[in-house]
Design a protein around this nucleic acid. Structure first.
Lengths: 202, 202
DNA sequence: GTATTATCTGTACAGTGTTCAGATAAGGGG
DNA sequence: CCCCTTATCTGAACACTGTACAGATAATAC
């Protein structure tokens, strides 16, 4: 019976995802470097060594969490973009801006989780699963840029730099702002800068 | 006598900077999260509690190191830029590119140190000293952009976005490439993208 | 109902950050 | 020269950590 939970603590039923979601809660609060496996176990009500049946070590739990966060971010972005309907140039531009805006808003809301995703933990072992999730975000970006290109809002010369430029600006500004290294009164300024950079006619 | 060193281990003479440089060496190798105060102390040949006369806790040592790294990066950038002499438009463009290139090269060479600077450790407590060092890098960027503007290589409309755009692209691309999230065959492509984004006429 | 298997416990070990009373050495004033 | 003050470092201690491993427990298959 894999759906039962909390019957006794033996055979928890869904320990792997319980570990990840509890880790998520703790990293969200205190940052990745303060995550303790023992605290995670205790919160679930399970012995400290139970986790080792699902993750070989603490680092693996953190990268497991990190990969699930890429999925979470992609979900969040897709949900927001799907709110903007229409096949107009105006809608295409709005979707493109929304893509950047949601990236920033998510990171601003969850700085510790964002830092985990792009810190040391998720860079080393690039599992196939991870790449798939990251590709999802990248494909969404490409889709938006293609749309802009079809509406002739972006030039032939600039199109090849589209992904590099927009992801780098949005990620870079987000990362710098969250870290307190750069101050911008409103992230819309950054989105304006991206549009200007790509030469999107307004 | 404050210049003496290693007479005995009592009164080391320069323990504070020894702590930072040893921490630098260890973080460089294994990343910030694996830095242990006890290992730093042992390497210097000093008791584990000696560090607490200079840093209130482990985190403070890490941010102390981080701040010194901003200085190191700025030094490196200034050294490279000063190699490019001349008051021509061509030289101004080369200096601007060199600014981005050195940023990337430094980070590529020292990924763990780079991650420390822009991770959780150096974002919390923004000491006045820290801001001064970061400002040095920012002022260098502004100087380069002003030069480009004087040579009429960058438009009135784009100039206000100069710092935001160039720093964000270079930092963002660097961070993504180092983390393995983005692949570029050559960073010069990114520098091309920045010039295109700013509309620098080539 | 018994055997098998996956899952979790308990105990143990080495290493960690941090505290604090006390040892040590340097420098200043007689 | 010696004493005394002060900064500096030691040593032992505490609570906590990640991790390993032998054994207990419960679900599953026959």
């Amino acid at each position: 019976m894999t759906t039962a939970r909390a019957r006794s603590h033996y055979h928890h039923g869904d320990l792997e995802s319980a570990l990840i979601s509890t880790a998520r809660k703790l990293v969200r609060q205190d940052g990745a470097e303060h995550l303790s496996l023992r605290q995670v176990s205790q919160e679930i009500g399970v012995s400290p060594s139970a986790a080792y049946h699902y993750f070989p070590d603490r680092t693996s739990l953190l990268s497991g969490l990190g990969f699930s966060l890429f999925e979470e971010l992609a979900d969040f972005q897709e949900k927001e973009i799907s709110k903007i309907a229409g096949n107009s140039a105006r809608a295409a531009r709005e979707r493109f801006r929304a893509l950047g805006r949601t990236y920033f808003h998510w990171a601003k809301k969850e700085p510790h989780l964002f830092n985990l995703m792009f810190g040391d933990f998720c860079s080393l072992e690039k599992s196939p699963q991870n790449q798939r999730e990251e590709n999802r975000a990248f494909i969404n970006l490409t889709k938006c840029l293609d749309e802009l290109y079809e509406f002739n809002l972006i030039s032939d010369k600039m199109r090849p730099y589209g992904e590099l430029l927009s992801w780098s600006v949005v990620h870079g500004a987000t990362s710098l702002i969250i870290g307190g290294h750069l101050e911008v009164e409103d992230f819309e300024t950054t989105l304006d800068a991206v549009e200007l950079a790509l030469g999107i006619k307004g």
